[in-house]
Every structure is written in structure tokens, then in C-alpha cells.
Amino acid sequence: MAERVKFWTRWPMVLWLAAVWVLLWGDLTVANVVVGLVLAVLLVTLLRMPKVGFEGRPWLPGIVVLVVWFLGDVVMASVQVAKKALSPGEPPHGAVIRVRLRSHSDLFLTITAQLCSLVPGSIIVEAHRLTGTLYVHVFDVAEAGGIDGARDHCLKVERRVLYAFATDEALAEAGLPPRRRLLRRRPAAEVTR
């Protein structure tokens, strides 16, 4: 039983590796898919990774909101940093702030940290796994809306990540309203707020 559970938990990884293989070759043929799957199974069985334990429920509207906001954030932040790079005068004042995340899952901590550090203007300096805390360096405090504004920004990213991938239980644990209520009234405003 334990073996079977393990095997099933590895399936997403196998599919992802096979998909990358097919995409790298560029055309969808039977041979490519078969070789990709065989290689993926080989890799997954030979090179065992520590289990992350994905317990979640991907939710398409949440993912769309997450991606769109991420792209918007990247563009906005890039323009801001570019402006600072070109404008003469004082260097900006940054800050290292503590952000206590609401969920306690490693996976969501990782995704949130990745998305935060991909946006120019915030870098994760340190992550404390036990307490679910990120220490974020903010490039320009004034531009980010103060220290509270910057902290709020990271929490919003986490909120979107949770709505995109977390289970209903995890959402409730994090103290967020369930998705059903989100859809019923003010769908976009609630997720993005």
C-alpha cells in the first residue's frame, strides 16, 4: 500500500518531465512521448527527491488571477526600478522586513518566495521554515507604500497563491474566506484585494 501511494504521488513529476522532454524535441510523436515517459520514470526512481507533499486543489480562476497579477507586478516594478536607475539623485532607501505568512506549508512558502523574488524590488534574504516567516528586502520603501505596504504586498501574493493551489481546509486554516463565497459576490475584487 505504501509503495502504491508513493508511486501515485510521483505521477505529476513524471508527467512534467515527460512534457519537458517532448517540448524540448518540439514535436509530439509517439516515440518522443514514450522515450520521455521512460526517461522520466527512470529519473524519478533513480534520483529520489525529498517528498514535498503536494496537498492542494488547483483552481483555474485562482491561477489565472495569480498569473495576471504576477505579470502586472513584474511590469510595474520593472518600470519603477528602471526609473530609479536612470534618475539622478539620492539612492533609494530600502528595508529588510519580516513577513509572517498565514499558511504553514513548505510548498506555498516556496511558491510565494519564488514569486516575490521574481518581481524586481523585493528579494527574499532569509526564510524561516518553522515559523513560516520570510525576510524580504524591499528596494524602495517610499515607492512600495511604506513598510506596511510592502508587507501587505507579500501577503497578497500569498493569498493569491493559496486561492490558486490550496485545499479548502488550508484556506480555512489560513483564515481566508472559502472560494464559494468569493465567487458569489465581487469575484475579482475579493481575490485581488
Partner: peptide, 28 residues
């Protein structure tokens, strides 16, 4: 963006702000 990021990396005063400049061409 690459050029602006390079200028930023040259002008910014400390390591962390230079890193902010560096992420820009890497992503957008």
C-alpha cells in the same frame, strides 16, 4: 531593459539594490 539594468547595477550603492537591478532583465 538590459542596458538600464546595467546602468542601475553600476550606479546603485550596495549589493542588495544592485540585485534588484539585476532581476529586471532576467525576468521582464
Amino acid at each position: 531593459l538590459n542596458l538600464i539594468a546595467a546602468i542601475g547595477a553600476l550606479r546603485f550603492p550596495d549589493l542588495l539594490s544592485r540585485m534588484h537591478a539585476a532581476t529586471k532583465p532576467q525576468v521582464l
